[in-house]
Nucleic acid binder design. Structure first.
Lengths: 223, 223
DNA sequence: ACCTGAACACCGTTCAAGT
DNA sequence: ACCTGAACACCGTTCAAGT
């Protein structure tokens, strides 16, 4: 009876924290935040709910874990670029990642337990600003502003029915709800801008981003 | 047997949608989002859970309702001011309201059913910008940028343990977690800025806000 | 070491009944 | 018209047991 373990074994691939987190993200991506339960996760993994507790202490740890995985997907600011293009690159990557996991942004609320990928990410962004000559105080201003914008935009993208392919339908239904005489400005903006054929809410992101980067540049080089 | 109703009646004040929403907000404010359940709400109101369903269709309607109440607390942009001070006033009010209901911002995720106070709020902000000479397109840019910033800042405030009275303790504990050799820039920012005596994260809000207003002003009056 | 059956104290919600 | 008891199909988690 050879004691070898995991060598040519035909048994099921064993559970692991990584496999668990990957499945959890898959469920949240496909069926939303509410569908991610210990029971649904266990079923997805072909296991009983109680087995999960051998790899994580509780559901909180799973939520902390998948948020850290998401942060790990965001590209770090490239070191060989100027601060401005480095910040632009990183902000655009963050927005893309958060848009692909709409459940993640609102979940950041209760997560006060940042994981290693999250800390590494923050450290790299701060380091990039410091290397570019931002004072500690200016770095704090810049990071607070940039991250608020990125998270806030992501949060709105998760809510608004605008940028979907189905935009006209959904938005049209919403418009029907508020009579234009009661909310005239909202109706005007909707019909003459949001509902126009070429409209893509995602374009707003880079416009606001450049405005913020302009402002930071001016803060760094006052003239 | 007089048929008068509610005249000098000593019986319990009857349930109503308003009373229900007010209690729901009180629970969320005091004990957090997770503590707000149909059962806890019923208990707070001195009633059985099933009675709630006489005033709302389901829990979703309660969540939609309390979000709309929160929006109603945000001051509208004053009509007698210039766009810049009107936007500043409204943004500061929004941040204050969202900070006093930390459960609200992340909840806006799933709420795709804006109530009347929410619509009135949006309509007033858009109207204020339009009246100041912003084109429809510029109004869309400005509103997207301002709201992303306000919501994102509120979301971060709900997470970060910074601006609390207990900041030094909590932040100190977090610092202890990441050794300064692994996340040197994070450690530097924490020890030399965030953990300094006079630090107040809330101050960051108005700094970023002015930068954004500067940018919008420049967009409106290019020179 | 890893998995699990049964159970506990919770959820939101329905349905048929009470006044 | 308004409230409710009992029940259903869910939650996350514990505990004592299986291999």
């Amino acid at each position: 009876m050879p004691a070898r373990v995991g060598e040519g074994a035909t048994k099921r691939v064993p559970l692991s924290r990584e496999r668990l987190l990957r499945s959890a993200i898959a469920i949240a991506d496909e069926r939303g935040n509410a569908a991610l339960t210990m029971r649904s996760l266990a079923q997805e993994l072909g296991v009983k709910p109680m087995s999960l507790y051998h790899h994580v202490a509780n559901k909180e740890e799973i939520l902390d874990g998948i948020i850290d995985v998401v942060f790990g997907e965001i590209e770090l600011p490239p070191a060989d670029a100027g601060w401005r293009s480095a910040m632009r690159h990183r902000a655009i990557s963050a927005r893309r990642v958060l848009a692909s996991h709409p459940w993640a942004t609102p979940l950041m609320e209760s997560r006060t337990n940042p994981g290693p990928a999250t800390l590494r990410h923050h450290d790299a962004v701060i380091g990039s600003l410091r290397a570019a000559g931002f004072s500690i105080q200016m770095t704090a201003h810049a990071y607070s502003l940039l991250d608020s914008y990125v998270y806030g935009f992501a949060l709105q993208e998760a809510v608004l029915p605008f940028d979907r392919k189905t935009a006209p339908d959904v938005a049209g239904a919403i418009i029907a709800q508020f009579p234009s005489d009661e909310y005239p400005h909202l109706a005007e903006l909707a019909t003459e801008h949001v509902l126009q054929p070429g409209y893509d809410h995602g374009n707003e992101f880079e416009i606001g981003l450049e405005l913020i980067l302009d402002g930071l540049d001016r803060l760094l080089h006052p003239n």
